[in-house]
Design a protein around this nucleic acid. Structure first.
Lengths: 154, 154
DNA sequence: ACGTTATAGTTACATATGAAACTAATTGCA
DNA sequence: TGCAATTAGTTTCATATGTAACTATAACGT
């Protein structure tokens, strides 16, 4: 008998959550599992955190963003972005200069070295995404997309 | 023109990810948003971390678990569980005793104070879940459930 | 022009987290 | 038995993270 646990009687008045059927919990597990699988592909190899990778991914698409704009696009807070940028600039992966008209703002872009990493990591990330989606049939994939977009709207 | 950003030409050879259509990214945003909304309900009021709440939720359903079993059920690592338990026992929310036959194992259960918190927080958590699901119609809710279970299987 | 308010970004501090080393108890098997 | 290998749980250490305070610059209203 590996684990003969009784499903808590707990009197009668309590109403315990069933974590395994609780949406926020399931989302958390799934999200962490998937993100970690991708991170495993690049963290060791490039000494790159998830935060840093997201900053790079955004700069790959939108060249010349400011730090605040990066924060908006990645949904991370500005402190996290500031720190990620400090490391990325230090490592020569991101180039930072000051905006001509507004000396508060930075103008950010990937360096050659940054692009090289991007071009290696992006396909791996896409492959992981495909692995996850491969567990679903075409119809389920469509529904998932629609549902996530609906939940994320506004 | 608040933000006239050009969608990165970036030469021609690069293929930047579109984060906003990338499944792992969308999952991460959604999961964090939902979990944070729930946490906001109890963190200040009870000085209770997400980790601690999950431990309590599991003990509410499965009385007498060991720390390792709690870790399994919450999908958290044993160090996180150990620390959460230390705080919960210290705060008088969880009772810990030693297993009769195996002195390594602990036998854990909620105290009266623990149950009181549980009985206040659990309905709030359920209400938040309902708020999220309210954005979907009945059909979408069914698909979401089925799809998440499929992705989480194995 | 000038003082107030807002914004971009960094720094400091306190807390959270994860990996690995560690202790204590139990199990397996020669 | 008795000793090597496992297992439960804690501690340590190095990093990560969030909040709030801070600096510098720009925008706004009078």
């Amino acid at each position: 008998m590996p684990n003969p646990r009784k499903p808590a009687p707990a009197g009668a008045e309590h109403a315990p959550l069933q974590l395994e059927h609780f949406l926020p919990y399931k989302l958390s597990i799934l999200s962490n599992t998937v993100s970690q699988a991708i991170a495993d592909d690049y963290q060791r190899r490039y000494d790159l955190s998830v935060t840093e990778w997201r900053v790079m991914a955004v700069l790959a698409r939108f060249d010349g963003l400011s730090a605040r704009e990066v924060a908006e696009r990645t949904a991370m807070d500005k402190v996290a972005v500031s720190r990620a940028l400090a490391r990325l600039v230090e490592a020569g992966r991101v180039h930072r200069e000051t905006h001509g008209n507004d000396k508060r703002r930075s103008v950010l872009s990937l360096t050659e070295a940054g692009w090289a990493i991007h071009d290696d990591v992006a396909p791996m990330a896409r492959a992981r995404e495909r692995e996850v989606l491969a567990k679903l049939d075409a119809q389920e994939q469509e529904w998932l997309n629609r549902i996530l977009d609906k939940l994320l709207a506004h």
